[in-house]
Design a protein around this nucleic acid. Structure first.
Length: 431
RNA sequence: GGCGCGUUCGUCUAGUGGCCUAGGACAUCGGGUUCUCAUCCCGAAAAUCAGGGGUUCAAAUCCCCUACGCGCCA
């Protein structure tokens, strides 16, 4: 039975690198019908941030990376929080002390390294052996004088007791893996398999961290990214679809995943491609689904219930859910007008043209029909010596205050005849 | 400093000795469609495969050295 875990430290809202690792753990577990476990490594009391615990849960929940065992869902190998397992570490550390494999040093307990020989393991990522000379390792602390275990020790004890079969983690842990292996050996335990993933790096190519201003995973949600595209994008970092596909679901990744397709070089997270991917997912969605997602996202939007007819107009125009608001504001409230917007149009007699437009609008048979509308204003454009493009842009700015909007006729249809007339009239009065 | 891991277009990557005058995707630039923007379609530019030395009839691919980056430990 495959059992993998993600073991984040609750030192802040998890950033995208943590989510990325969780994805690979999750996918590997699912691929093998195994279990995915969450364990909180909170032994660093100085950096402990209480609210990050909930943020870790929320991040995994949002992305749908559900774990089978964890602090908030339980499981037979718990507790899943290290600070609640101190007795366990103490007991195991004492075992080593009694066997003479560890010794006391100023109140702390230090592991004794067997300096002869080498330590080797076969890493799943890159499918290669990694070897360290044991003499390069130094005796290291396993239990601090305050009774807290060190990372290296607690991690191994927990992985063993929780029956972890595959340790999938960032390659910054390659250097400490020999120590871990030595602990397994000291206890006579069979070590798990290791898969050291590349790390995600920031723009300076160093490991992604909050110091880079690395965004928390949840910020991507609040910026209007879909979990599907975040997951898809993350899977493209380090892993490649055997057929070279770029857009695929996590289910598809689960079906095809193999460590042999995992790259070993560190990857830089470029948000531009994520934005493109997010747009792809938005365009692929049905109008009903997108409406629902937008309503969830725009929980506090005043016109939340009225967005359904607008959705088809914006679907091909938004990359993120948050793009909806600036693009459609004018449909729900009277725009602010700025003469500069009209100047861009290069039309000499704006006011006179607007008056003509108003006249035509008033005269047009209701309800307004797209074909009639288009014909009427193409004729008017000719009459006024304007290009069709200028004419429609003028109407666009007149009803929206903007030069960029969803298609004009459809927008006006949603706005309604009365509101449209009101806006044009208001604008003329304002001029 | 020691040890380890890495290095293919700006970015993510394909590539496991001949199909590579290195393929794809995003971004960029140009064009078409069009009432704006976007979508969509077509096209271009973009990597002397970090550098050098081997091995081989043949190397991005195997070996060695160097450089650089990153990581861990001190």
């Amino acid at each position: 039975m495959v059992r993998v875990r993600i073991a984040p430290s609750p030192t802040g809202s998890p950033h995208i690198g943590t989510a990325w690792q969780a994805l690979f753990d999750f996918v590997f577990a699912k691929k093998n019908n195994g279990k995915f476990i969450l364990r909180l490594e909170d032994t660093d009391r100085e950096r402990y941030v209480p609210e990050s615990v909930e943020q870790i849960y929320e991040t995994l929940r949002w992305l749908g990376l559900e774990y089978n065992e964890g602090p908030d869902v339980g499981g037979e190998f718990g507790p899943y929080i290290q600070s609640e397992r101190l007795d366990i570490y103490k007991k195991h550390a004492n075992d080593l002390l009694e066997k003479g494999l560890a010794y006391k040093d100023e109140g702390a307990l230090r592991f004794k390294i067997e300096k002869a020989g080498q330590t080797t393991w076969h890493d799943l990522v890159g499918d290669k052996d990694i070897t360290f000379e044991n003499q390069t390792q130094e005796d290291f602390i396993i239990l601090k004088s305050d009774g807290y275990p060190t990372y290296n020790f607690a991690n191994v004890v927990d992985d063993y007791l929780m029956r972890i079969t595959h340790v999938i983690r960032g390659n910054e842990f390659i250097s400490s893996t020999p120590k871990h292996l030595m602990i397994y050996q000291a206890f006579g335990w069979t070590p798990p398999q290791f898969a050291h993933l590349p790390v995600l790096v920031g723009s300076d190519r160093s490991k992604l961290s909050k110091r880079h201003g690395a965004k928390s995973a949840l910020e991507f949600r609040s910026e209007g990214f879909l979990k599907e595209s975040v997951l898809n994008f993350l899977s493209l970092l380090g892993w490649s679809h055997p057929e070279g596909k770029e857009v695929f679901s996590i289910e598809e990744m689960i079906k095809l995943f193999d460590f042999k397709d995992v790259n070993i070089a560190s990857a830089y997270f470029d948000i531009t491609k994520l934005e493109w991917l997010n747009g792809e997912y938005i365009r692929k969605m049905t109008n009903e689904d997108l409406t629902k997602r937008l309503q969830e996202f725009l929980a506090s939007h005043p016109a939340k219930e009225k967005i359904a007819p607008v959705v088809p107009l914006v679907k091909e125009r938004i990359k993120k859910l948050s793009d909806f608001v600036p693009l459609t504001d004018f449909l729900f409230e009277k725009p602010e007008y700025d003469k500069a917007q009209f100047e861009k149009l290069n039309i000499k007699n704006v006011k006179e043209s607007l008056e003509k437009i108003l006249e035509k609008l008033e005269a047009m048979e209701r309800p307004w029909k797209t074909e009639v509308f288009e014909k009427t204003f193409r004729e008017l454009a000719e009459e006024l010596g304007l290009s069709a493009s200028q004419m429609f842009q003028l109407i666009r700015v007149a009803v929206s205050g903007q030069t960029v909007t969803p298609p004009l006729f459809e927008s006006i249809e949603i706005l309604g005849e009365e509101e449209t007339l009101k806006r044009v009239a208001y604008l003329i009065a304002l001029w």
